[in-house]
Design a protein around this nucleic acid. Structure first.
Lengths: 305, 305
DNA sequence: CAATTTAGTTGACTCAGTCAATCAATTGGA
DNA sequence: TCCAATTGATTGACTGAGTCAACTAAATTG
């Protein structure tokens, strides 16, 4: 795609999104607030203590205009200002309890608007949209901070996500065929069907509501814990997430009294192999196979606990 | 993956993009046009001949306001209007040569703004942004013509999608627990692992690259085809897609020489039951079970071919 | 410590956008 | 077929969101 085609597409999107936001912002029409009022309240409500200059900068408002808005909000008891102890020209703005209520009302309305849009979409589409929004934001807004990475137990739909994302990744990257997806689905399915909360666990890493990593411990019998389906999404590589997940597995296996962790992998997956090596796993056997199409070196690794 | 996390993220993006567009739209500040003027000129310039109502609708403008803008543009010789021959109340608006020049000047300024942004980015990043914009647009823009519905054989990742979407749907709608997801994953996994292209098939319905429905035929032995994992996404209900997929199954089973199709379902899934009934399936057995948490009536249906 | 910059306020203004009333053409029933 | 309701477009009358310039007060610079 040529540069000018990209620019045209972006301009077109902006035109579209200007309209779209125009519609969404009608949500504020039957509140006592104008769009600018709402934006100010949003900003103050979200950030708690900030100065007027910061607002002028962030929202690109006229200082005189903002001054009047703040004055009105103060008169209505929505905001209060305290002089900045470090710079007595400046004042720090924060919401009062009443202001917080109004802010939350705005959030509710705004959320309802968005939820209304999302309701009309197919399953997974909101995720696609939000994912795309995050892409745009992270590239256009250098200050954007990533939402925190959370590691949590599995819940409904996670195993499906594991099957889909692993299948797609290994297919694209290494040309593995659908038998691999079949294996993953069977492993994931058996895990859920025979799940023993006392001895088994699944860790899902997510960021901002989007899954980015996984690992399972299943009970292999004879005091052996099996580590399975370790996977880190492209977007989260290089953060040490793989190590974190494997460490969680080891801690869990120790706590549950397993005497050994075993896992099966393939030698071309070097990032994973490094994690296992560093965690103290030892390679115990290796065999060539063609389970997924291309010839691979399957490896079994073991860690004595 | 929670809904509210997605909505929060979307709201946050909208807040960000409102500011962003606010900055971009400053591009028009040193032209004789207001933002609304520019939007009108853009729309007319891009679409060539359109009616005032269409503009009011698309740009969500007040009709009175638009009327004045058009009047001014006509007076300045930027636009001309001709009465719509089909409806003499209505008039078709088009740009004059001078109008086109002005329009192109706006495009130039807008492009320059965007190019300025893109210049600061790394190689490939503009592509990512534009790709993400297209994702958002295609999903949010109701006027964007729906891409055609395609029914195709399964490919990598589809089974994972089936697991995730079915698990989420039946969990939300009927409170089924994760054992259901386990069952689906096992069925899907076994299908892939033991896939026999001669006698088995999976149909995936997709629209614009997004999966919206599925059904499988697996070989149950003894001349019995098993119909499994029929699922239609929320967004595609009521289009007769379920019937289409089941019809495909029947045609396939006949062609492959099966003598019977059997399927297992639960009585609360009335939409599916209607499809089976109309296709000629007969209920042959029924038993209460609690395989997925709540008490359900499992049903076996059979169609003789 | 004078000159300059920065944070915030106030007065004065204007024009972008809204609302209600009206006209003219079209559509939809009884 | 004709009357009532609807739809497209325009105009008059208005308002309040947002702008610009001038000013005060505190902080920074050199």
């Amino acid at each position: 795609m040529s540069d000018s085609a990209l620019i045209d597409a972006a301009r077109d999107f902006n035109r579209f999104y200007t309209n779209f936001l125009g519609v969404l912002n009608k949500a504020y029409l039957d509140t006592p607030f104008t769009l600018t009022d709402a934006r100010v309240l949003f900003e103050v409500g979200s950030q708690e203590r900030l100065s007027a200059v910061a607002l002028v900068r962030d929202l690109h408002l006229d200082a005189a205009y903002l001054s009047r808005i703040l004055k009105r909000f103060k008169a209505e008891g929505l905001l209060e200002t305290t002089p900045d102890p470090d710079d007595r020209r400046s004042q720090l703005i924060s919401v009062t309890d009443r202001g917080r209520e109004q802010f939350q009302e705005l959030v509710r309305r705004s959320n309802a608007q968005i939820a209304g849009r999302f309701d009309k979409l197919a399953a997974g589409e909101p995720q696609s949209i939000v994912g795309a929004m995050k892409t745009i934001r992270s590239l256009l807004d250098p200050d954007a901070t990533l939402p925190p990475l959370v590691i949590r137990p599995h819940r409904t739909g996670d195993m499906g996500w594991i099957v889909e994302s692993q299948a797609k990744f290994y297919s694209e990257e290494y040309g593995w065929d659908m038998r691999f997806e079949g294996l993953v689905a069977e492993v994931a399915g058996r895990f859920l069907s025979t799940f023993d909360p006392a001895m088994e666990y699944a860790w899902i890493a997510e960021r901002g509501g989007i899954n980015i990593g996984s690992v399972l411990i299943t009970n292999g019998g004879d005091g052996i814990a099996k580590l399975r389906l370790l996977y880190i999404d492209k977007s989260a590589r290089g953060l040490g997430l793989g190590k974190t997940l494997v460490d969680e597995c080891i801690r869990f296996a120790r706590a549950k009294g397993y005497r050994q962790i075993s896992l099966w992998t393939n030698d071309i997956l070097s990032a994973a192999r490094n994690i296992y090596l560093k965690a103290g796993f030892q390679l115990v056997s290796e065999e060539k196979h063609r389970m997924f199409g291309p010839e691979l070196n399957g490896q079994t690794w073991i860690l004595d606990l």
